[in-house]
Simulated assay, not measured.
Amino acid sequence: MAMRDYAADKETIKNFFVDFCETNDEGQKFFKYAEQLTKVAHREQTEFVVELDDLYETNAELAEAVKQNTRRYTNIVSDLVYEMLPDYKHKEVAAKDALDVYIEHRIMLEARNHRMPGEMRDPRNRYPPELIRRFEVYFKDVSNAKSLAVRDVRAEHIGKLVTVRDKDLELAKHIAYVHQHSSQPPSRLRALPMRLVRRYISLTKRKQPVVPRALADYLVSSYVELRREARNARDVTFTSARNLLAILRLSTALARLRLSDVVEKEDVSEAIRLVEMSKQSLQHVEENVQRGISATDRIFAVVRELAGSSSTVKIADVIERCVDKGFKPDQVTHHSIISLHTSSP
């Protein structure tokens, strides 16, 4: 890959910020990046967002270079925006914080100590650009970009523009906020008092749920089914008696959460589902065969497996088996597959 002329790219991006415009419904032109520059200069916003969809319209090659070397172009655009701000500042900013006062004071002291024009100051005393800037530059990926899960981000993605899934992005933002502020983000939901949570945990520890004899056959058949599927599966997971012990422990834990003295069938089904989901989470290969199969097809596979040579299947059995496979009951009932394949021809 040929080396890029970053000085030329900087000039191209500058012209892009100045000239790019959109037309609204009334036919009027709107210079979106010039408007952002004005708001940043007046301290009305702290985020400067560059949409790659817009840059692709002007220069697709440059947009692709930004995706492949986002860290470098973030610094380039940050320097460029800082240089352009005086041209878009139409009024003085009245509100100043402590950092403004500190910087102005240091500049005044430097001016007193370096009266000779052109005198170079010690590079060690220069202000970091990140401290002087009062904004952050963000690149928004193209609308058709493929999103990744956070766990799929690898070392080769460092420095590049990566789009993560919405849920993963929310989780990452939540974790970053907690580490930065040592508290949970503000929310409309009211958290339970810790005293109440401690009291609830204390009550659950007093419970010792028992597994009734009526669930013995269900537990045995479920474990045998898990063993059979493990033998036919192509993954590296292994199902042993420890899995049965895990199911029993999870079932009793779920019963404790309900403050119940008896383990119910729903507790066992949920425990089996959790075990199945934990096994699936170990399969991090990108070309997982299950990812290309729709939920309807997988539910239909369960129906065919239950039916065998028979032409009818009980809906309750289908729901129960699908729940064991990791589906939720509403997922099973949502698909028309049950009405199509569980009735007699």
Rank of each mutant, 00 (worst) to 15 (best):
R154A: 07
A149K: 15
P117L: 07
E270I: 08
S222E: 05
K29T: 06
S222R: 02
S278G: 06
R106S: 06
P117C: 05
L274K: 11
L99M: 13
T12C: 09
V178R: 07
I337A: 10
M120W: 05
Y73N: 00
S309H: 10
N24G: 04
I76C: 03
A98W: 13
T237G: 08
L248E: 15
K91E: 15
H179Y: 13
A191D: 10
S183I: 04
A255Y: 01
S310M: 07
E320Y: 07
L245S: 11
E119P: 01
S343C: 06
R231A: 08
M1G: 14
R121E: 15
M108A: 15
E92M: 09
V323Y: 03
E156N: 05
E92H: 11
R291N: 13
R213D: 14
A246K: 10
R190W: 06
K265I: 09
D324A: 15
K14F: 04
D152A: 11
Q283R: 15
S311A: 12
R134K: 15
F238Q: 14
P345W: 05
E266I: 07
I107P: 00
R188H: 11
S339Q: 12
R126Y: 09
R298V: 03
D235M: 02
E266Q: 10
N75Y: 13
V77M: 14
S344D: 14
R231E: 12
